[in-house]
Design a protein around this nucleic acid. Sequence first.
RNA 1: GGCCUCAUCGUCUAGCGGCUAGGACAUCAGGUUCUCAUCCUGGAAACAGGGGUCCGAUUCCCCUUGAGGCUACCA
Length: 510
Amino acid sequence: MDKKNRVRIAPSPTGYVHIGNFRTILYNYLFAKKTGAEFIVRIEDTDKKRFVNGALESLLHVLVWAGVEYAEGPKLKNNIELQSIESKSYPGIFEVGGSGPYIQSERLEIYKKYAEELVAKGYAYYCFCEPGRLEELRKEQSANKLAPRYDQYCLRNLTEDEINKNLKANCSHVIRLKVPKNETVEFEDIIRGRIAFNTDNIDDQVLLKSDGYPTYHLAVVVDDYEMKVNCVIRGEEWLPSTPKHVLLYRAFGWELPKFAHLPLLLNPDKTKLSKRQGDVAVEDYIKKGYLKEAIINFVALLGWNPGAGETQEIFSLDELVQRFELEKVHKAGAVFDLKKLDWINAQYLKKLSIDELYEKALPFFEQKEFFIQAGAEKKSPEFLRRVLTVEFDRLPKLSDVGENNQFFFATDLNYDKSLLRWKEMTDEDLKKNLEKVQELLGNISEDEWSRESLEAKLLAAAGEKRGELLWPLRAALTGAQKSPSPFEVAWVLGKVESQKRIKKAISLLV
RNA sequence: GGCCUCAUCGUCUAGCGGCUAGGACAUCAGGUUCUCAUCCUGGAAACAGGGGUCCGAUUCCCCUUGAGGCUACCA
């Protein structure tokens, strides 16, 4: 009987959720769902200096937002459905699952035990070197164009008695991995194939820090072993440290998991995606009004695609799960191109009903200055729904809502009367046409005031020369060079407001 | 500097020895249209370079070049 695959995501609570990390999370999730693997969330908070308050909570919120479900790991209070225990160090966070705790800062004893086991077996050693000495060493090495490496001073010079004396005296120390000389370390990567390193290029990595916390390298190996993770899917930046992990698995006598190193997400200049060149937090994109479905769809396609036979590129989370294959993930990095995100987002926006769109768009309206300044009748759900009905297929993202059609919200339009002119028409003719429209609209009752009937009646009235009637009307209603059609605008504004605006335009032409 | 990884249109990519090198986004032109957007049609646009292997290389191998990552008591 083959055991179940287990995968994990291992984020650090050091701030927002980086979009690159989000893709790693997504791929792990897609892989787990597709293959029936168990999915674990583990928090790697072993760097006290980089810890950011609230980061864990916001990470968990993003997981809930994205619909990433997991049976094991920390959860927010209102998202627990199984037996769980509240975290000691993170009030309000509950841990679910049988391999916990899933927060590394709560597992310190475990790492210590394993680190000491390694020392006892001769695979690691105590190091009492002070940071100053190490820095000096590195400086000298790089000045001589040598790779900066620990020189094994404590391994070579300290007797067992001295070590014990130091330990007893509580001297600050770390535990380092004793890397063997001139051996080849190999491992299989699902995406990249066989990868080999010579141990002569590997530093004696610190495993346990002087503050008693483990480094990533120790913690990740110990936890993946203890949590029975047998497939490690992570970013390419971890490729160079994988041989250290392989060495640890070997020293402990543990079976190696499968590895898959994902290609990096890149800035337009091809460097690793970074904050300096734009937004990198998932939270930023949510704030900008990108839909969850669009972000997931877009990010999934960065470094992977369903391959031959697919002409469309719009996939729901379920469809992604169906199609996802880790083996088809790319090797090369992918540039994060917002243009395509906009397009994908527009596709999803178009699929929304007006009710759904209204619900999602309202918070964005409420942030807009033109909305805040608008009269009460223009803040009504009915009015906003009409605006959205007209706008929904010209919206790249929710934050653009109303932005190009602010005239809807204005109490008084300010424009030059020349805007009313269609081609070579005289003021007199323009005025005549506007008066004709005014009369026509006056004869349409509030009940009949629909897009369809407005369009039908106005087109009938315009006859062959549409522009002569429609352009001045649209200009009068919007005061803008560009806008949706006059039928739509009139419908949104309503009879009273429309006639008021036309009346003003007529007065300009006197 | 050292180690590792990578390399098809501007971008995301299809391709797994024989294709007029395909699609999507972006872009350009035209159409629909009172303007804008949508939509439809069409165009331009790529195998980094050099050696091999092979009847035949975008595809396999090597080198060069280029790009990126890592090189912490950060992850």
